[in-house]
Design a protein around this nucleic acid. Structure first.
Lengths: 168, 168
DNA sequence: GCAATATACTAGGACATCCAAGGGTTTGGA
DNA sequence: TCCAAACCCTTGGATGTCCTAGTATATTGC
């Protein structure tokens, strides 16, 4: 991006909200806007780290998920549910990973509707290498204080549970 | 989306990271993944609330920004900087808002390179109405505890400053 | 057993984001 | 003064996400 702004645009927005008589929702507005912007920054870092591997975050997530599955294979609908994205997004990611030889589609042994995504050995190797780079370049240098990481996990975990992501 | 999962997939991923010897970055990984997912949930809520107005979040943000500018007008590059998105994204948003009659482009009085985005009266009215709905349906029902909102603003504010968003 | 309903995946379309490149305008140093 | 460098916006291309609809397969109920 460009040079840093002289002032925090989200703090400015929060003040604008308060000034216009919406003080009761100004803080949640600021928090939500901050989540949006933080996601954008983190995604950019991740994509930069993955670029040398020809991977995007969406494709990496799918590879990583498969690499943790015992058999190295998952039904498309399972992957969609675990990654919490629309089934068409999985179709898209599998198409591209398959072109790159990192996964392949195989029919489900008993359910003719279902397609299994299988990791190839190339896919497994690339997932390992990409994870190592993400760990060292992104997760290992997140810029979050250690106790703030715990706070984020707790706060966002509660939010996601309330939003219906999981019941646990 | 579908039904809630029986377990938190991000907590599972964190356990997987720890199990594979990446315990030192497992927590930041979980926090970052949670930010990504939370953004997705929030964006979906916002888009749902804005749909009746024919607005997307990107277009709404631009309208709101203009409505807070004294003159109701801003240079494209200024909007790009304040919204922290790529200039081409602003071009895209302005194209669509202009088609809808909510903004218009006008030449900068002194700098021939610059284009000003101006809010029309329809645009100003729609921004007001959309903001009211967002306030009541999204920001007013964020699902975040009040003290967690403060924590988020603080933690993500620090992160954004460190990331170079602003210097203040 | 067969029709109605539910589930799984994919095709097509609308949007948004970024990057790379191109054309016009300003600015600044030789 | 004048040309190169910097800046501003737009176009074109690649990706990802979602929604709607369509096809194929399973399951359920009468």
């Amino acid at each position: 991006m460009g040079t840093p702004l002289p002032r925090d645009p989200i703090a400015d927005a929060q003040r604008n909200w308060e000034r216009h008589g919406w003080a009761d929702v100004a803080a949640p507005m600021a928090a939500i806007t901050a989540v949006m912007r933080t996601q954008q920054i983190l995604l950019a870092r991740i994509e930069t780290a993955l670029k040398p591997f020809g991977l995007t975050f969406a494709r990496y997530e799918l590879l990583a998920l498969l690499s943790f599955a015992r058999s190295g294979a998952l039904p498309m609908n399972k992957a969609s549910a675990l990654l919490q994205v629309h089934p068409t997004s999985v179709t898209n990611a599998v198409d591209r990973l398959q072109e790159a030889g990192l996964v392949l589609r195989s029919p489900h042994p008993t359910d003719g509707r279902t397609t299994l995504i299988e990791l190839t050995s190339e896919g497994r190797t690339l997932a390992k290498r990409a994870t190592a780079v993400l760990n060292s370049e992104v997760f290992g240098q997140s810029g979050f204080e250690e106790q703030d990481v715990e706070q984020l996990i707790r706060i966002l975990g509660n939010f996601r549970r309330n939003a219906g992501d999981f019941s646990g």
